[in-house]
Design a protein around this nucleic acid. Structure first.
Ligand SMILES: [Mn+2]
Ligand SMILES: [Mn+2]
Ligand SMILES: [Zn+2]
Ligand SMILES: [Zn+2]
Lengths: 140, 140
DNA sequence: TTTTTTCTTTAGAATTGTTCTAATCTATTG
DNA sequence: CAATAGATTAGAACAATTCTAAAGAAAAAA
């Protein structure tokens, strides 16, 4: 809110995650925060950083995405082999996966309901419940 | 049922899929059929074949798994980056994914219910709905 | 401040699961 | 039996990701 210190919020989040506010982390956090809800891969974020003139290595993008995920700032979503998406929306929600385009899209809250939850097998506890609705271009 | 022609069923399935009943395909089909419901990776099936004395290359295991999947004899399930599971149960059902062990387990039919289905985005149609319940060893 | 320590970034190598290539082999067809 | 179409294979290639170890930057200590 204070135009003189535009990074205050991101700074606080990094601090409370025990992460030093480096140039690279601040820039990546800003790119992620400024773009609304998204589902982005490491390579995509790396490209985006390059285009924005931010010099950062792909290794650092991977490190940062995992650190942000561990800190609860991102959520990792896997729906196809060999590719991880990072979701800027960390709330519990489900996804459409558009198989023709390789695109993840949030399912609006309430549009899908898991009404009966299974009991976790003996000795284990449920950590998350995720519904993936695979869709294809309509054959109309 | 006829002990003299134990491969009849597998043979028929291959034939109707337009696949030649080669030694490799018959052996892999048998391994998959004889072991009950399973969620197996290509490498695991390859190892199992080796141990059973079946000589088959990993490339052929991959080819065969994909052909069987295309023929509807298997279902491919992806829950973690960089690894595909092939499910011998092709009916519609959902999964526990045991994150500590990297193990997929069927959720019993009826133990989970998706009561409200989302409307597919304009121009697309729903192809499948899959619920993944991630579990962890209990912290008891 | 300066020094020291700890954490971070990075290029490039390595790893993993998977797919591709193109030569050899085998099942089917005529 | 050919002849042909299809299948198998070893090993190369690939793509996403992780690792390594050296150089750099931030924080803590002096
Ligand atoms: Mn990861
Ligand atoms: Mn596949
Ligand atoms: Zn999302
Ligand atoms: Zn299953």
């Amino acid at each position: 809110m204070d135009p003189v210190r535009p990074y205050t919020e991101v700074l606080d989040r990094l601090k409370s995650a025990g992460l030093r506010p480096t140039r690279q982390r601040l820039a990546l956090a800003k790119l992620l925060a400024d773009s609304g809800d998204r589902h982005i891969t490491a390579e995509q974020l790396h490209d985006e950083a390059q285009r924005a003139g931010v010099r950062v290595s792909l290794a650092t993008v991977y490190n940062t995405l995992h650190q942000f995920t561990a800190a609860g700032l991102l959520r990792e979503v896997v729906v196809e082999a060999g590719r991880s998406y990072f979701d800027t929306n960390t709330s519990n929600h489900h996804h459409f996966f558009h198989q023709d385009r390789g695109e993840l899209v949030d399912i609006p809250a309430g549009a899908v309901t898991v009404s009966e939850l299974p009991v976790a097998p003996e000795g284990s506890a449920i950590e998350s419940v995720h519904v993936v609705v695979r869709i294809r271009d309509d054959a109309n």
